[in-house]
Every structure is written in C-alpha cells, then in structure tokens.
C-alpha cells in the first residue's frame, strides 16, 4: 500500500542514475579454501581504484589473515597506514556494518567509500547476499555491489565435486580465475568449460600473479544494469557436472504494470523458493521512463530501485535466474501465466 504522499509518478521513491547510487557499495569476495581471495584483495587495495576501502574479513585462521595488511583484532576496527579499515566480523556482520557506518559518521574512522567482505572458504554466500535486504537500516547505507568468486584453476577440477564450491560459483556475479598461469592450458580449458556450464551469466577475468583489473572486481552496480546474456543454456546431459544448477534469462519487450510483475515474482518465490537461488535484472514497468532493478536471493527480495534511464537505451525486461533443480520451462510458463493478466 502506497502512502498518501507517494506521487503516482514516483512509486519506487527517488529514481537514481545507477543501482546503489548514494549508498556505499559492498563487494563480497568468496572462493574456496586456498583459492587466492586474500591475495586478490591484498593486491586490489593497493590500487587507486580501491583506495578508501573498508575490509571485513569473515574468518580467522585462513591464509593471509595474519598478514601485515589484513590484520584482525576481534571486534574493533583498526586503521592501517594505507587508509583501509580492517576488522574481523566473526560473529555478526550486521553489527559490524552498522558499527562501521556509525564510526564513519562520527569521524572515528576514515571516510571509506566501499566495503569489501572476504567470506570464509567454506561459506555459503547466500546469507550475505540477503543481508542488505533484510536489514532496513543497513539497506539505506549500503548496497550490494556484487558477488565475486575466486576460482583456483589448479584445484578447480578436484574441488568441483564439492557442493560448497559449486554454489559459490553458481551464484557469482563475476568470477576471477586465479593461478591460471601455473596450471596447464588443458586444465584451464577444462575449468573454463565447467564455469561455462555452472555460471554462464558471470563475467570472467583471469588474474595474473594474483592481480585482477580493479574495475572488474568493483563493478558499482554494473551487473544489475546489464545482465549478461546467458552464453549457454544448460543441456540435460550437463547436469552431472552442474549438480542441477541452472541459469537462464527471460526477456520481454512489452511493458508491464508493476503489481503484476511483483505478483509473478512472489508466486515464483512461493512455488519455487527453495530452488530459486537468485533472480536479478531490469523490469520495463509500464509508464516509467527508466527500468526498475529487481534482485531476489531465494525468498528475500531487495527493495526495487528505479533508474532514471535505460543504461543501453533499450526498454526491455531482462531477468537472469539462477536455480538448482529448477525447470526453466516451468518457470517461464508460471511467470507468463501471471503476466497474461496484464496483456
């Protein structure tokens, strides 16, 4: 129910030029044990593009944690010489982020411009992706910039049978392939094929000596603005390798009334919630000049955010859906059945 002051022309609040504008971007870096997350971050925060980053390390005991650059000190933030803030969010990421902003607005820590969260090697990133949607106060300060998964080319083939590894890859917005320079070309090609199948929507880059292009890692909402066209649909016989993970895209030119779109996504969550891992993209809402960004992680929906204009000038609904044991045809039929009420 809209409040009495919601202008008909602004049902989603104040439109912004790009997703997350005005909020502090949060980049989540995940990857299996030993994949090279710490090395990647250590190199990243040396670059001007990543200056003034706050770093949250989500685990003790992993390699590099005792490094001079990625020091931890239990619950307190620590200022480092390069202007980074480093802390260990071993217990409560919510509380850590809230405290970080409270310290920032009181001048207790430098004006960090982004947050980088390094997850533990075995963690499921889903709760972190849901974090900013479930905490309203945090959602006004921070915006998810994306999930970057580091994949170790040397060990990917042996790790790819592990469910934790597969989920980290399947959910990724972006993938950094590490240690490709020390793996054989055949192995790298085999890993690339797995990634093609498991995460066809994720943009990829190869790290060289642990370094990757900072603008690739810190995307500032790029993934949501221009979701990649799924490069390859999963074939039936691939399910052995993907453990049932599927990724597909849905497009629709015709604009749609927002309540109908919202209803269709709610129905999808209700009927396929367990299998629906992520849904993200842009919606061409009837009567709106720009797109509305949608992002759901399982049954949790981030607040829709309206953009002032279509980033590529093409007004077209485009959704990317990542699921597990999710029937693409059934999902499309279900969505289109609800959308039919609008047609």
């Amino acid at each position: 129910m809209l409040h009495p002051f919601a202008p008909r022309e602004m049902p989603f609040g104040r439109p912004v030029a790009r997703p997350g504008l005005g909020r502090i971007p949060v980049t989540v870096v995940t990857g299996f044990l030993g994949a090279g997350k710490t090395t990647l971050i250590r190199e990243l925060i040396k670059t001007p593009e990543a200056a003034n980053s706050a770093l949250i390390v989500n685990e003790f005991g992993e390699i590099g944690i005792d490094d001079a650059l990625l020091r931890t000190c239990t619950e307190n933030t620590v200022l480092l010489g390069n202007g980074c803030v480093c802390c260990a969010a071993s217990t409560d990421l919510h509380r850590t982020l809230r405290q970080l902003f409270a310290d920032r607005e009181r001048g207790r820590v430098p004006d960090f411009e982004r947050v980088i969260i390094e997850t533990s090697g075995l963690s499921d990133p889903t709760p972190i992706l849901q974090l900013l949607a479930t905490d309203r106060a945090l959602g006004t300060r921070f915006a998810l910039d994306g999930l970057v998964t580091v994949v170790d080319a040397v060990h990917a083939l042996s790790n790819s049978d592990l469910p934790e590894w597969r989920k980290q890859v399947a959910l990724a917005d972006r993938i950094v392939l590490s240690k490709a320079d020390v793996a054989s070309a055949d192995v790298v090609a085999a890993v690339e094929r797995i990634l093609d199948r498991l995460a066809p929507q994720a943009q990829r880059v190869v790290a060289v000596s642990g370094r990757a292009d900072p603008s690739f890692i810190l995307a500032a909402g790029r993934d949501l603005v221009c979701p990649e066209v799924v490069r390859r649909h999963i074939q039936e016989h691939d399910h052995h390798h993907t453990d049932g993970y599927v990724t597909f895209s849905i497009r629709r030119e015709k604009p749609i009334h927002w309540p109908v779109m919202q209803q269709s996504l709610d129905v999808l969550s209700a009927l396929c919630g367990a299998e629906l891992l992520r849904l993200k993209g842009l919606v061409n809402v009837r009567g709106r000049p720009g797109p509305v960004v949608v992002h759901r992680v399982q049954h949790i929906a981030h607040a829709p955010e309206e953009l002032t204009a279509w980033p590529d000038g093409v007004a077209e609904t485009r959704l990317v859906i990542i699921g597990r044991a999710l029937d693409e045809l059934r999902v499309k039929a279900l969505l289109e059945a609800v959308w039919a009420f609008d047609d």
Binding site: G22, I24, D103, R104, E105, R108, V109, P110, D111
Partner: peptide, 16 residues
C-alpha cells in the same frame, strides 16, 4: 578511537 578521529585530525567528513 577519539584521539584518532577525523575531525580531531582536521579532515573533512563527507558522504555523498
């Protein structure tokens, strides 16, 4: 933390 606060150091505090 107060002793190292930005305002104490003479820096601006800014967000957006």
């Amino acid at each position: 933390v107060g002793a190292r606060g930005q305002a104490m150091r003479g820096d601006a505090m800014a967000w957006n």
